[in-house]
Amino acid sequence: MVATGTPQARVGASRPGIRAAKPRGRRVGSGRVGYLFVAGYTILLLLFGVAPVAYALWLSVTNSSGQLVGLGNFTRVFADYRFGPVFAHIGLYLVLWLISLMVLVVTLALMLHGRLKRTSAVVRFLCYLPGAFAGASSVLIWLILLDPVASPIGPVLRAVGWSSAAQVVAPENLPVIFMIIAFWTGAGSWIVIMYGALNGIPHEVIEAARIDGAGALQIALRIQLPMLRKWIAYMLILAFAGGAQLFVEPQLVGTASFGQVPDDWSPNQLSYQYAFVAADFNGAAAIAVVLLVLSLGCAAAAVFKAGLFERGHS
């Protein structure tokens, strides 16, 4: 079922929740065997999921000699002159990224839905393909493409006042540049997913509205958009969580910015600086814990609030 059938069929199809999916049948596998089957995965979960979190928590409340210092590390990193700016940077980037994602992805999915099937499929595929270059490749390509000297859109860049590579990667432009890169690599898969979700809306509902005289715009605003709400929430939560962890983009742009962009532009970079430059593992752990809380909060919101993972009622 998962890898067969059409995506449309899957989106919106009823799924078992964690509790709802009670094993069926009269006899189910006994507990002991269950433990054996999950043993390997559970060990990995404990070693590389739980242990690093626990150890980071421990480091964040102790000092380098292993003595408990309460929230000392936190107050210390909060007072760091770099702490405010890294979160301001990432905050600005997140605002741009989430707005572009919400407005453009939903608009494109609505525009592509229900039109010229073949064309729409090709367009969706081309939107999604750049995702293969996520990470360092996409940064490399966009660094060259945004350099007015070599860019195929050089005149456009000069028109907005960017006449040299150094001007483009100036610190104040970075949120926009990272938004462009993130959109290029990440928007396509969400367009594909939103399109699938739109297919989950019963055809009769749309048809009834059309007979009542609703135009495409009204159908989009009154019917399709409200029905996409959960998916939009899910997309925004995951994009927020992922965006807050930005590392590779500022790291690469930092090395290619003629020294303009510091090595501590994003929170993860700052944590990295604490660990590798200052060899201050306790400070690094404190920042990692702040980011961890942020991520966990998002994950919990996606699981318990967005309503996409139906947990059922016991």
Partner: peptide
């Protein structure tokens, strides 16, 4: 659902 970068430094 947590981004995989979250756990890297820990």
């Amino acid at each position: 659902l947590m981004p995989n970068a979250t756990l890297v430094l820990p």
